[in-house]
C-alpha cells in the first residue's frame, strides 16, 4: 500500500536557501554501489526509462504518489528490515520533515492525523 503525503508542494518559505528536491543523488549512489545486474538496480533503471522525470527536479511530490514501490526500493538500504523494528523514517526535500515523498508507516501516521501538533523543543 503506497503511502502518500498530505501536503504535496514545497512552499516552506521559512527556509531562506533555495531548495530543489530530486532523487538523482540517491540513484547515483545505487549505480556506484551495486553491480549492474543487481535485481533492484535493474528495476530502478527500468522505471527511470519509462518515467525519466524521476531523475529530474520534482516540483510536486504528488507526482511520486504512483511510484511508492520505486521509492521503497530506492530507500531500502537505509531502512531497517521489515518486521524487525517499527521506526520513523522519511525521504524528504532538503530541510523538510513535514513534507515527504516516501515514509514508513509509523512516520506517516504521526504526521497524518490533523490532531497532531508539532512544537519545537529547545535543547
Amino acid at each position: 500500500m503506497p503511502i502518500k503525503s498530505k501536503k504535496t508542494t514545497f512552499t516552506d518559505s521559512d527556509i531562506p536557501f533555495r531548495t530543489q528536491f530530486c532523487l538523482n543523488t540517491v540513484i547515483e549512489k545505487w549505480r556506484k554501489s551495486v553491480p549492474p545486474n543487481h535485481e533492484d538496480l535493474i528495476y530502478i533503471e527500468q522505471t527511470l526509462k519509462t518515467h525519466p522525470f524521476l531523475y529530474t527536479p520534482i516540483e510536486d511530490v504528488s507526482m511520486l504518489d504512483d511510484h511508492q514501490d520505486f521509492l521503497k526500493i530506492l530507500c531500502s538500504p537505509l531502512l531497517p528490515k521489515e518486521g524487525w523494528s517499527s521506526s520513523f523514517h522519511a525521504l524528504c526535500a532538503p530541510f523538510e520533515h513535514r513534507n515527504y515523498a516516501f515514509a514508513t508507516k509509523e512516520y506517516h501516521e504521526i504526521y497524518l492525523h490533523e490532531d497532531v501538533r508539532e512544537s519545537s523543543v529547545d535543547s
Binding site: P16, F17, R18, T19, Q20, F21, C22, L23, N24, T25, V26, P57, C75, L78, S87, F88, H89, A90, L91, C92, A93, P94, F95, E96, H97, Y100, A101, Y107, I110, V121
Partner: peptide, 27 residues
C-alpha cells in the same frame, strides 16, 4: 549570517533521509 552569506545565492539539491528517534521516555 544572511547579510554576509545571502541564502538565496545557494541551492540545496537532492533529498534528505529523515529519521525520528522516539525520546519520549527520556524527555
Amino acid at each position: 549570517w544572511m547579510e554576509i552569506l545571502p541564502p538565496e545565492n545557494f541551492l540545496f539539491s537532492g533529498s534528505a533521509f529523515v529519521t525520528l528517534v522516539d525520546t519520549t521516555t527520556e524527555e
